[in-house]
């Protein structure tokens, strides 16, 4: 799937994303000119980080299928590293964590050779059974359950769930003649990120009723509902260009992404609150860490993947 073989719809969608980015950058310039005394530095940083992320993402998608798979593997690596640096770990588990990192190339290798059966059980079954085996052989029982549990939860979120984005890419084009696997990836990633922004904007404008105040005091029912509705609407518009979904299927996909994205977001918030940090890291200026950016995707990727997979592949 070199750039010559990218479907025209995918090229148009990427062009559309850049158009939005340019519009957002221009909007900030206008805002700055109108209110020079206000501080827009965080917004400027955020958009600058968006430029870098979207450019890297586009280059990866355009270059080749294998480059894209490596790109998603790197995201899993950065996310797992952030997670393991954040959570309390045990000194005895240094080698176990090394094994945990090794699951990343292996899991994405299954994606590369399109072995779905192995891809879907490798982490939930084999990694799940193997890592505690190694831990038992090391023999430190103090906080054993906490260590084994938190390690596997992290692997599920950052490697298993996120690798579903890469598997969308290698699904047979026959199942999605209009835009191929790249179209599904764009649909999922764009709507997930759009939903984050939409929920934030609706919440800012109309937010009144807190939804999970003890986890994320700024999140409201109004933001949630507005975001899910907007995302659902946009999904029905975009679906026929990028996916094999018909209108009602597309609406449900949009709602799934809207609601799933919200849950992924608040779950990472809950973890951060548990540990006592504000951002998961400092990799992306204005956004925080990589976990702050892919939190929604950890939920939307497997949900959307299995939904489309069941219906059309």
């Amino acid at each position: 799937m070199s750039w010559l073989m990218l479907k025209p719809n995918v090229v148009w969608a990427l062009a559309g994303v850049f158009a939005i980015l340019i519009a957002a950058s221009l909007l900030v310039v206008v805002l700055k000119a109108r209110a020079p005394q206000k501080d827009f530095s965080e917004l400027v940083q955020r958009i600058k980080s968006w430029w870098i992320m979207i450019t890297v993402f586009t280059v990866a998608i355009v270059l080749s299928r294998n480059v894209s798979i490596v790109f998603f593997a790197l995201i899993s690596f950065l996310a797992l590293k952030e997670y393991l640096s954040l959570i309390p770990t045990r000194r005895a588990d240094r080698r176990i964590m090394f094994w945990a990192y090794l699951t990343i190339p292996i899991q994405y290798y299954w994606v590369g050779i399109e072995w779905y059966g192995m891809f879907i059980i490798f982490i939930p079954v084999y990694a799940f059974l193997y890592l505690p085996t190694r831990m038992v052989l090391i023999g430190v029982t103090d906080r054993f359950l906490a260590a084994a549990g938190s390690l596997h939860w992290g692997l599920m979120m950052t490697v298993f769930c996120l690798s579903h984005v890469a598997f969308l890419l290698v699904l047979p084009t026959a199942g999605n003649p209009v835009a191929g696997g790249a179209g599904l990836v764009l649909f999922l990633v764009f709507l997930t990120q759009f939903n984050d922004v939409a929920q934030y904007t609706w919440g800012k404008l109309f937010g009144r009723t807190p939804i999970v105040p003890s986890v994320s005091p700024k999140k409201t029912w109004e933001g949630f509902a507005g975001g899910v509705l907007t995302t659902t609407l946009l999904a029905t518009v975009l679906a026929k260009y990028l996916t094999p979904l018909n209108l009602p299927e597309a609406a449900l996909a949009g709602a799934l992404i809207g609601a799933g994205g919200f849950i992924g977001d608040v779950i990472i918030s809950a973890i951060k609150r548990d540990i006592g940090v504000k951002d998961s890291g400092s990799l992306l200026p204005g956004h925080g860490g990589i976990l702050d950016r892919v939190d929604s995707l950890t939920y939307t990727a497997p949900l959307f993947f299995h939904y489309v997979f069941y219906l059309h592949f």
Binding site: K81, L84, S85, R91, R94, F98, Y101
Partner: peptide, 18 residues
């Protein structure tokens, strides 16, 4: 903080930590 986790004294295996 963190480098003692990544490569402590007496260990040759580097484990990634921020």
């Amino acid at each position: 903080h963190g480098l003692g986790k990544a490569l402590p004294r007496g260990e040759a295996l580097l484990v990634p930590f921020i």
